[in-house]
Design a protein around this nucleic acid. Structure first.
Length: 299
DNA sequence: AATGCGTGGGG
DNA sequence: TCCCCAAGCAT
């Protein structure tokens, strides 16, 4: 009696196999420690938005030692948050995390909310981060979809080499179909599929030889067809970009507690028009402010 | 919805 | 070397 696997049994197989694999092979990361807490998880998720794990860990531990609660961060000026962010990149995230800490303190009694809509209302929290916090900090049964999850589903389930461009509804639906019924198993699976994408089913050179779901992988079954769909637009060149100049200015502002003069800024970049443009955008973002004949981080 | 937003490591 | 990518978000 041969049984053709139904989508349900295939989904159950993938989630059970990945959860078993994850239980044995999960990396020992700070935010996975028992009792790490919702605030620590929230901070880690902010830092992990587009920044690799290994670069996040030291900054995260410093951050939580200094600001163990949302209220403690809310009590200092945003300049301190931006400075402690150091060179993690995308410093707007530091500003947004500080703003979220203020909101949590003023609107939620200093307790990181667990409700999806409450989380989404916080500055700097979008669909991924809201779901990650509700799931990993509070154990709710929500689908959590990040870039790793999207890639694993594209390959193992859809048989494509790469995911299509993100589509919120479709992404949540496809992850929802794989999600185990129990909230505890669901939370584990959300982390497990992300982990697989991060360490095995990687974007560039996937390690299919050690993949725990290689036997049910649709991409492998189809003999690894190349991706044919539309790609997301590539990043613009960084060298010579406004982003590079913004980065130089921010590094200068972080390096001192006194105000940085126009003359000092002019030494950072040869094109003064571009430098002014970058500076104006930082002022507009609230990452810099005028002070005492120069510029400082936002107090 | 397409674009802008840092930084650094790896193929 | 250069190009791609990394637990996204806001506009």
């Amino acid at each position: 009696m041969n049984v053709t696997p139904s989508p349900q049994t295939n989904a159950a197989s993938v989630s059970a196999t990945l959860n078993a694999w994850f239980t044995e092979n999960a990396r020992d990361l700070p935010w996975r420690r028992d009792g790490f807490g919702a605030w620590g998880i929230l901070v880690s998720e902010f830092m992990l938005q587009q920044t690799p794990v290994n670069r996040v860990i030291p900054r995260l531990e410093e951050w939580l030692a200094r600001w163990p609660t949302p209220a403690s961060l809310a009590a200092v000026p945003p300049s301190e948050a931006v400075r402690a962010w150091s060179s993690l990149g995308y410093p707007r995230r530091a500003l947004w995390l500080h703003a979220a800490a203020v909101q949590i303190t003023e609107l939620h009694g200093g307790v990181v909310p667990s409700d999806l809509d409450d989380l989404l209302a916080l500055t700097g929290i979008g669909d991924y981060t809201a779901r990650a916090v509700a799931t990993f900090a509070y154990g709710y049964r929500h689908p959590v979809v990040d870039t790793n999850t999207r890639r694993v589903i594209a390959r193992a389930i859809a048989g494509a080499g790469e995911p299509s461009p993100p589509s919120r509804g479709r992404d949540l639906e496809s992850m929802g179909k794989l999600l185990p019924q129990s909230a505890q198993e669901a939370a584990l699976f959300n982390a497990a599929i992300m982990e697989l994408g991060a360490v095995v089913c990687t974007s560039r050179s996937p390690h299919c030889d050690v993949c725990p779901i290689r036997n049910v992988c649709a991409w492998r079954a189809a003999d690894y067809p190349e991706y044919t769909g539309t790609r997301k637009a590539g990043q613009k060149k960084f060298e010579g970009s406004d982003r590079q100049v913004r980065g130089l200015i921010m590094a200068e502002l972080r390096s001192t507690h006194r105000s940085v003069t126009d003359a000092e800024l002019d030494t950072l970049w040869p094109d003064s028009v571009q430098l002014r443009r970058a500076l104006a955008s930082l002022l507009a973002d609230g990452l810099a402010m005028r002070a005492q004949g120069g510029y400082t981080l936002p107090v």
